[in-house]
Design a binder for these strands. Structure first.
Ligand SMILES: [Mn+2]
Ligand SMILES: [Mn+2]
Ligand SMILES: [Zn+2]
Ligand SMILES: [Zn+2]
Lengths: 137, 137
DNA sequence: GCCTAAATGCAAGTTGTTTGCAATTAAAAA
DNA sequence: TTTTTAATTGCAAACAACTTGCATTTAGGC
């Protein structure tokens, strides 16, 4: 139950702890919601260059500290990928574009996984991995 | 089992049947695979303006004649949405980027839904619809 | 404190997609 | 069939998300 901090997330990884990385990670830990690069940029009052944010998001993804959540309106969303936040499905509202995290309790009625009155219009199921062509090499 | 034609797909819809729409729909019907705007543009030997292709893809989507399949590498993929091609999951290869359509037989082992040796690395499950905030208006 | 590789900011470049506008065209009206 | 007109097209420019090159700064080992 030890809470994540910018330092705890980066420790033992041979990654420089820069001022901007502390700020970015602080913001990521601070929000519970999925976020895009420009969400971050805005929430930081544009005090950091967008290119720096993009470079750090890529790095954090590679390290498995954050994960890609959803690609919507040609914009990539991410969320923290620590032990407190295991993988789970998401609900995307076709009207306001908000992204809701769904609880991932194993055997459970759908109703209990989102609070309130959600109307599901589409269910998107995608598999990613290695195809036979690419598997043999 | 009547096969789709550009005309049959557009009929009764108050949409002008232009030369370029026949060509685009012909190409879409011709290929079984998901395609992007630039896939189409290339396959038509650049004989049609990309803007026209984008405008028509948007229109066809709105009409439910095609559907969005996947947003990958910041590029949108589509496929024909006629009665011969009901909704189904897709497999995206993390290496070559190919998109495979999966058969959607109801009760079935996963093995039988894709031919060959596919390694699943990620399963993406997304719901889209209307959230409670947007539902009450 | 000094040194060096890594990280940053800035500006410019890419790529996918959209938009404004004048010219073309499908198809409804005459 | 010819005329009319609103929709569609092509072209060029605009946009938005993201990436890259490069000179400058900085974290962290010495
Ligand atoms: Mn989530
Ligand atoms: Mn398919
Ligand atoms: Zn909503
Ligand atoms: Zn492959």
């Amino acid at each position: 139950m030890d809470k994540c901090t910018p330092e705890s997330l980066l420790e033992g990884r041979n990654i420089k702890i820069t001022r901007q990385r502390q700020i970015v990670l602080g913001a990521i830990i601070g929000t519970g919601k999925p976020f895009s690069a420009s969400d971050l940029h805005d929430s930081l009052g544009s005090e950091m260059d967008l290119a720096t944010i993009y470079r750090n998001l890529e790095m954090l993804c590679g390290e498995g500290i954050i994960r890609q959540v959803m690609n919507e309106k040609e914009r990539q969303y991410y969320e923290l990928a620590c032990k407190h936040n295991p993988e789970h499905p998401h609900f995307y509202c076709n009207i306001c574009g908000k992204i809701y995290c769904m609880k991932q309790d194993k055997p459970m009625r759908l109703k209990s996984r989102l609070p309130g009155d959600f109307t599901v219009e589409q269910t998107v199921l995608q598999y990613r991995g290695i195809c036979p062509d690419c598997g043999k090499e």
